[in-house]
Design a binder for these strands. Structure first.
Length: 547
RNA sequence: GCUGGGUUCGUAUAACGGUUAGUACUCAAGAUUCUCAAUCUUGCAAUAGGAGUUCGAUUCUCCUACCCAGUACCA
């Protein structure tokens, strides 16, 4: 009796998947997994004109990155599924490859009086629309107008046969009945009623390319693939009555899926839905992965921007859904457990880039120092820093590590050195790449100095004091630890009754290139005595102010 | 225009018809620190407007406003 839960995500490969599309896929996936059912990916490529090479691969890669893995259909095992198999009983899952299936269903509708052949050319239709517009009306191909158009309802039978034979741009249209109230139920929006008088005779099948339109293909495939719930974007809500009528016309009401229409993702400021432009303008991605279009324009992606997939999934899930309490952090597993369609918001959700960053920071903090170190090493290497697992090997190669494990002169550092940097700076980072901005001077001497800080702190009287602090550090002979170095320096400055703030800020300027940044003791301890003194002297020597 | 959907702090959202309308992000102030960041504390800030039903409405009904979607041989 209980129907197996089977849901599908059915994108058309007309470009990269938008983050709103990822959310739709995610909700489908969560719903399927929660109900122990199947999540299927079907590619709706019935419009050959809009096909974009690489789009399908992009969609699969993006979903895979997010951990949204289909049980069945395209992308479920990394290869094309052409023929039915136990795992993929309804293959193929690309509508262009299912071409032969649809025509008979369209013909069935005609036989039963639910559809008809239409021979109106594109020009004739455009003309009819223009004419209606001129008299401030909207042309609708429906019960009112269809009898004055060229179709199998108005033309003599032999003429219809002749046109079917001899022409190749006719279509099959649904014969929308007049003045009928369609009563629908949406899992998110509740009961909806629409009068069919406001609907039109939608094209179901096109002779020109022998392919169905979305409406036919969608209903036929959802039926054949035994889809139990259709969870899709709000843009489909106006088509729902048509879809109901189609299920009825086919006699498939008993197995008609239940529908849930998701609200759209809106732009952060102003009105309207989130678009590629908003991202570019406001500095956040709208796509899961980077995408370069045929014109060579590149759009940034969450992955390339440094977001963790867990963070991306979490923030997407919370855009339009909530668990009913104050929890905000959810792993995929937890989402599967907590998700429910009746907690999905009806109104569109404005995307908030700040919150997205907050999520990433939270997830970054959840990572272990070891994991983060592993992720940071490539970033360091890009910046000319060498990281070695085995200090002894590096030693024989000529490296001279200081107590902390760094060889600043040769740009070689032990993994432990990197990990200790990660450990004490991770609370300041949002993305892995932030570590370089935060702590680059623990790996290489500053090349520039913030002019504002130079003006404010690098004054002759301060420079003298910093040079003395440098001498003090040089002669420091206690155990070299962060604490010892820190307290020794502070006590030295205090005992001389020098102004702490001025000296420390000038000191940091010499070490880090800026008066603000990491703690002095943390810096000095890691870069070591030699490098500390060198950095002080370098700035002092290059500064005419300290004469 | 027409049809449908929608409307709680700036944003995401919570609140069996009964709460001082809660939480998070952002922002501001204070604490802390050698600085910055982080952290902690405090604070700012909302039921679109109007009728009605009700002892009582954020919640139910209607109207208005505004927003979104659809109105293709696109999905």
């Amino acid at each position: 009796m209980e129907r197996r839960t089977r849901v599908r995500f059915a994108p058309s490969p007309t470009g990269p998947l938008h983050m709103g599309g990822v959310r739709t896929a995610l909700y489908n996936y969560l719903y399927a997994k929660q109900n122990g059912g199947d999540f299927i990916i079907r590619i709706e490529d019935t419009d050959s004109n809009r096909f974009v090479p690489g789009a399908e691969e992009y969609i699969i890669e993006a979903l895979t990155w997010c951990g949204i893995i289909p049980d069945e259909g395209v992308g479920s095992d990394g290869k094309v599924v052409e023929t039915p198999s136990p795992r993929h009983p309804h293959a193929p899952y690309r509508q262009s490859q299912r071409k032969p299936i649809y025509r008979k269903y369209a013909e069935q509708l005609i036989r039963n009086g639910y559809a008809y052949y239409a021979f109106d050319s594109a020009e004739e239709l455009a003309e009819a629309r223009a004419k209606a517009e001129a008299s401030k009306e909207t042309f609708i191909y429906n019960q009112v107008s269809r009898m004055s158009m060229r179709n199998s309802l108005t033309l003599p039978e032999d003429e219809v046969d002749r046109l079917l034979e001899e022409t190749s741009d006719w279509t099959i249209r649904f014969k929308m009945p007049g003045n009928t109230v369609v009563r629908m139920d949406d899992l998110i929006r509740g009961h909806i009623e629409v009068n069919t008088d406001t609907l039109d005779d939608k094209v179901l099948w096109k002779r020109a390319d022998e392919l169905p339109t979305y409406h036919l293909a969608n209903i036929v495939d959802d039926h054949l693939m035994e889809i139990s719930e259709v969870i899709r974007g709000e843009e489909w809500l106006p088509s729902l009555p048509l879809h109901y009528m189609l299920y009825k016309a086919f006699g498939w009401e008993d197995t008609m899926p239940r529908f849930a229409h998701l609200s759209l993702l809106l732009k952060p400021v102003g009105n309207g839905k989130l678009s590629k432009r908003d991202g570019d303008k406001m500095g956040f991605p709208v796509f899961p992965l980077r995408w370069t279009n045929s014109e060579g324009e590149t759009s940034r992606g969450y992955r390339e921007d440094g977001y963790f997939p867990e963070a991306f999934v979490n923030l997407l899930a919370m855009l339009g859904w909530n668990p009913g309490d104050d929890r905000e952090m959810f792993s995929m597993e937890e989402l599967i457990g907590a998700f429910s369609l009746d907690k999905v918001q009806k109104a569109g959700a404005k995307f908030n880039p700040d919150k997205a960053k907050w999520y990433n920071r939270e997830y970054l903090r959840l990572k272990t120092d070891e994991e983060l170190t592993g992720l940071l090493v490539p970033v360091l290497e890009e910046n000319g820093v060498n990281v070695v697992d085995c200090p002894k090997c590096a030693l024989t190669a000529g490296a001279e590590f200081n107590v902390a494990g760094g060889d600043l002169g040769n740009h070689i550092f032990t993994k432990d050195y990197v990990q200790s940097v990660v450990a004490f700076t991770k609370e300041r980072a949002t993305f892995v790449k932030d570590f370089w901005d935060i702590a680059h001077y623990l790996f290489t001497a500053p090349e520039t100095y913030v002019q504002k800080d130079v003006d404010k702190f690098w004054k002759p009287e301060n420079v003298e004091l910093v040079l003395k602090v440098g001498d003090f550090i040089k002669s420091f002979d206690g155990e070299w630890t962060v604490e010892n170095v820190g307290t020794a320096v502070e006590e030295y400055i205090k005992s001389n009754e020098w102004p702490m703030g001025k000296v420390m800020n000038a000191f940091r300027l010499a070490l880090a290139g800026s008066a603000s940044g990491l703690g002095i003791a943390d810096i000095v301890y890691r870069i070591g005595k030699k490098e500390t003194v060198e950095r002080i002297l370098r700035l002092a020597d290059s500064s005419p102010r300290s004469e």
